[in-house]
Amino acid sequence: MAGERFELEPTVQALLRDVGVAPPVVLRRARLPADLFARRPIELSVDEYYRFWTALEVEAGDRSLAVDIGRAISVEMFSPPLFAALCSADLTAAARRVATYKALMGPLRMSAETDQGLTISFTWPTSVASAPPPLLAVVELVFWVALARIATREPVRPSFVTVVGRPTDLPRLEEYLGTRIRASGTYSITFGAMDAFRPFLTENEAMRRVFAPHLRRRLSDLGASATVAERVRAALRESLPAGDASIGAITSRLATSPRTLQRQLHQEGTTFQGVLTATREELARHYLDVEGLRTSEVAYLLGYGDTTSFYRAFRTWTGLTPETARRAVPMTESRTAPEPEPG
């Protein structure tokens, strides 16, 4: 892992400004290129990744920057991991979804275990000489509390939190988390069963705010004349970002059985797999038209377990790689991330 490079999300720049930290100053202290945030993709080695977060912690001074970051996270941020998490049914589903993608986002591994609740823990590469910057590790924990509160609109508090060492801003962190922090050899956060499976109110809200108008076709918006295939397509648009493309998930949304659904689709001259493939291709073309959205993130939002599977599927659909399609297809609209709707 020491030789790998990881992509820093472009939204980090906006997040830094939201918490009152000047990105140029952080980059200079971290000995990183001044134009780093203008590059696509923003790739860092493990050492550079650690230097960035260490510089950020130094610039924060005696502030509790992890808490400030947690409070700055919002549903309006178009961050694919956050978006997919908000689209999930509950905190447990979100953790399992993000865990499959976490290794692409930084030099760490995340696990989500359920045993009378939910425990999320992080491990860091042993091949790197230095330990992860404390701020980076603590922000990973704070993220899940912020997410749970945003998604449920409840003052969710973890039941157990462990960190390595003692954070300098311990009192403020404990106040934000609403629980004591215990010293341990690992970074982990545990939620009780009620909060682990509390329904996310953002399951459709995130879709409404982020998707472009021609993709914002929710099940509730379909008319009585909509075909079964159209209803399946609408359900898939809501399920894919949360990582569930199974026929069981779709039949649950449509209140029917897999056998009945397959029979109805057959009568319309198609199959569930056919609708799934067509929907993925449609969404892939849409996502590839979004400025700054990485190919790995597109694969993630389409419910693929890895980037290779998405590459293979996209070649089957178009005969091109995603990168080639991006360069070859003239964009008729501004290639920017979708603006959130007012209200």
Rank of each mutant, 00 (worst) to 15 (best):
T123E: 14
P322K: 02
D306R: 14
R326G: 02
V25S: 11
S74D: 13
R335A: 15
T324A: 15
M194D: 11
E333R: 15
E174D: 04
S188R: 04
L118E: 08
L135E: 06
R17T: 09
I247V: 15
R97T: 10
P199M: 04
H214T: 10
P338Q: 10
P342L: 12
R217V: 15
A93T: 13
L302D: 09
L222V: 02
E48N: 06
R285C: 10
L301D: 01
A235L: 07
E205L: 14
E7R: 14
A66N: 03
S130I: 03
R285S: 06
M105D: 14
V228C: 02
A131W: 06
A94H: 05
I189N: 03
P158T: 12
T307V: 14
R29C: 01
P132Q: 08
M207F: 09
R312P: 02
S309C: 07
T119G: 05
L65Y: 03
P338Y: 06
T277E: 11
M110A: 08
L82N: 13
P23W: 03
A299T: 06
R63T: 08
A328L: 14
D62I: 03
D244E: 14
T332A: 11
A245S: 15
G61M: 07
R312C: 07
F191N: 00
V21W: 04
A66Y: 01
G61C: 09
I250C: 01
P134F: 04
A85V: 03
F160H: 15
S309L: 13
I181H: 01
R51M: 03
L56A: 02
A72N: 07
V161Y: 00
T324S: 12
F143Q: 11
M1H: 12
P322A: 06
A146K: 08
T100W: 07
Q267G: 02
D18T: 13
I120H: 06
L219A: 01
R259Q: 13
E174R: 04
F160N: 11
W317C: 10
E57T: 00
T162K: 10
R280V: 02
A22W: 05
L147E: 09
L36M: 05
A94G: 04
V58T: 11
P80C: 11
E282D: 12
E203M: 10
P81G: 11
R39T: 05
V329R: 14
I120T: 06
R71S: 05
F197Y: 15
L276P: 00
P199F: 03
A325Q: 04
L265R: 00
T114H: 06
Q13E: 15
F52Q: 00
E7T: 13
G269Y: 00
R149T: 11
L32D: 05
E4P: 09
A183N: 10
A94W: 01
S334R: 14
C87V: 11
Q273C: 03
T123S: 15
A234T: 00
S220F: 00
A242K: 01
S130M: 08
T54K: 12
L283M: 15
D244G: 07
V46D: 00
L15A: 13
R153F: 07
R63A: 13
R166K: 13
Y287L: 12
S88A: 15
T152E: 04
Q264H: 07
G185R: 14
R335E: 10
G292S: 12
D169W: 04
R217I: 15
T321D: 06
I181A: 02
E203I: 10
R237I: 07
V26Y: 01
V145Q: 08
